[in-house]
């Protein structure tokens, strides 16, 4: 009576990280019909296009507009959007919102993407070692994964961020450090399953070294779920960055990120609501796009993939 998403739950004490539940909810097994597949496909395409626009806009956009994101113009403070020379208005220091959103997008997207790459690296490594060796090593590693997941990632992230000198690189590392566990679980599960298949045995018989077996034979087979997890992980990392930066422990001003642009927007909610609304809109847009893309990829790469 349990569906695949619940298979692991009742008999498995593993708690999820605070984003794990979100992701698990996104990653429900697909129930395919032509219409649904088509719809998913379209949403995934839309996601990919929006991501492309956001990336291009963030990286090329600043060269195309006449304003610099750091240029302070006290005479132009709080110019509302769509009313003057500044299309999306200006902030409390008279800086152009569009320029800041573009530069913020660079940071947020780059942090999201880099954190994903690092967290995938850690997750794949830990998961592969645990899955391949199994036994005590595997169990110990996976219990460590479980234990880290007991800490709500925002709490862990903030506690760690408070201990270090915040900077783009260190925040990226910390986000990766709190976002690799789900990947480790996926990879561990995949590899534990694949390990029993005969081709791994065959490679072993040919005398391949342990690591070569893991990375040359097994990991490519787990590629579909890894690609999906990677896409969803970008969404997760962008969200996490926005949380810590909003709370003031992430990317530090004057470097803009979508998250830290919201940092003191609340003060101006009455007089200049666009300061709060615009950056959040972009975060939501980016995260939704990555989530839809991941969902569509899951469908495209393996319609029968129900192991998450």
């Amino acid at each position: 009576m349990s569906s695949s998403i619940f298979d692991s739950s009742p008999g498995d004490s593993n708690p999820g990280g605070d984003f794990a539940a979100r992701e698990a909810a996104i990653a429900l097994p697909p129930r395919n019909t032509a219409l649904r597949r088509f719809c998913r496909h379209r949403l995934a395409m839309a996601g990919a296009i929006i991501i492309a626009i956001l990336v291009l806009g963030s990286y090329l956009g600043p060269y195309l507009i006449p304003y610099d994101d750091t240029f302070i113009d006290i005479m132009q403070r709080f110019a509302p959007p769509f009313s003057g020379a500044h299309i999306l208005g200006t902030d409390e220091l008279g800086r152009d919102m569009l320029a800041r959103l573009m530069m913020g997008g660079r940071i947020s997207l780059a942090v999201g993407f880099t954190a994903m790459v690092i967290s995938m690296g850690i997750g794949i490594l830990v998961g592969a070692i645990a899955g391949y060796y199994g036994g005590i090593v595997g169990a110990a590693l996976m219990r460590f994964v479980d234990a880290v997941l007991c800490f709500p990632s925002i709490f862990l992230l903030l506690a760690l961020a408070a201990l270090i000198e915040p900077g783009v690189a260190s925040i990226t590392l910390l986000i990766a450090a709190t976002a690799w566990m789900d990947v480790a679980r996926i990879v561990e599960g995949q590899i534990r399953g694949l390990r029993e298949r005969d081709f791994a045995v065959a490679a072993e018989a040919l005398g391949a070294s342990d690591l070569r077996i893991v990375f040359r034979e097994l990991v490519p087979n787990a590629v579909a779920p890894i690609v999906v997890a990677a896409t969803l992980n970008v969404a997760k990392a962008i969200l996490l960055e926005s949380y810590v930066s909003y709370l003031g422990y992430g990317i530090q001003p004057p470097t803009p990120s979508w998250g830290n642009m919201l940092n003191n927007a609340q003060i101006y909610l009455t007089s200049a609501p666009w300061l709060a609304i615009l950056p959040g809109l972009f975060i939501t847009l980016a995260v939704t796009s990555f989530n839809f893309l991941g969902d569509g990829l899951r469908d495209a790469l393996d319609p029968r993939m129900e192991n998450h």
Binding site: L247, L262, A276, I283, T284, V287, N291
Partner: peptide, 18 residues
């Protein structure tokens, strides 16, 4: 649901207050 899962909670809070 997918969109709701993608909205930063604090931003939704700000919008709600607004």
């Amino acid at each position: 649901a997918m969109v709701a899962l993608s909205i930063p909670t604090f931003w939704f809070g700000l919008v709600t207050i607004f």
